[in-house]
Simulated assay, not measured.
Amino acid sequence: MVDDDLIEMHDRSVYFILPGQLRYHVDSQTESWILAVNASFLQEGLRLKLNEHYYGKKPVPLSQKKAERFTQCMRFLAEDLQHPLYKFSGLAVRKGLIDVISGMITEEYAVGTSDRQGEHSRFAAITREFKELLLNNFKKMKKPAEYADALSLSTPYLNQVIKASTGFNVSFWIQKMIMNEARVLLSASLKPIKEIAHELGYTDQAYFSRLFSRTQKISPQGYRLIKQAQLPWTGKKNKKTLFSG
């Protein structure tokens, strides 16, 4: 489960989530690996490319050869974390392994996009800039005009570009980001709803509650009660989790 979405991974595949997304493990029928890494450890180019695929991303299948290489790198990292052999260069070795693993994952998401973007490179560039801006500013920038101004574009043109690229307009994505974060905060914390509203940029708790209720078809408090009763916060024995950073 990632936020409110059930993600099913079949055969050999990879999947990534962003910082702040709520994740918990439901079930595994095979061996799986999880690498939890501080975003600052990722190369800037890889991080930006992964951010481009945040919208509508799905698990990506791997060939058997790529899956074997991926598993070898993960096992190497796991062994080094559990039984370090490198003293002077230990951090560099781990950083190198993280670069390799994140590079392989990014490659799977990025493959083929350059060719498809050729014909619409202007739209692709604007959409990429909008996504990055939204990810970093959705708590304080709530209006399409604010994003258009930041990108030195007119609001109608920005809406045209984003709808052509993603199928939805700017307002849809702003609201989606806010509601995603709201659901995470309601599920994973005991913060008062008023505090959550302020954290998301709303000084009026009543307005935030009405917005949440209208878009999610349930009140913030009702959603919290349901989700906190559902979250298991447990994993399976055959799930390996690596924490680096």
Rank of each mutant, 00 (worst) to 15 (best):
S114P: 02
E181A: 12
S209E: 15
W233V: 14
E146Q: 15
K57C: 03
L91Q: 13
F138L: 09
P192R: 08
D149Q: 14
S89E: 13
L135K: 07
K217V: 00
G167L: 01
A36F: 08
Y86K: 08
N159D: 15
Y109I: 12
A125R: 14
L134P: 11
L42D: 09
E68R: 06
T203A: 00
R12E: 10
Q82K: 11
Q21K: 14
A110H: 08
F168G: 05
Y202K: 04
G235N: 14
F172K: 11
K49N: 13
L133P: 05
G245K: 05
H25C: 09
N38I: 09
P156H: 08
S40L: 03
P84D: 05
L211A: 13
I218F: 02
P232Q: 12
L42I: 14
A36D: 11
K176G: 01
I218R: 04
I218N: 01
K217D: 00
G235M: 12
R183H: 00
Q228R: 15
L81Y: 06
E79H: 12
H10K: 14
L135N: 07
Q216M: 14
G56I: 04
L42N: 14
S189A: 00
Y54N: 06
R183M: 10
A229T: 13
E132W: 01
I193E: 09
I17E: 02
R23I: 13
L77F: 02
F138D: 02
L190E: 14
T127H: 13
A125C: 02
M9P: 04
T155S: 14
G90S: 10
H10I: 08
L186D: 00
L185E: 02
K236C: 04
L46C: 08
R75L: 07
F212M: 13
P19L: 06
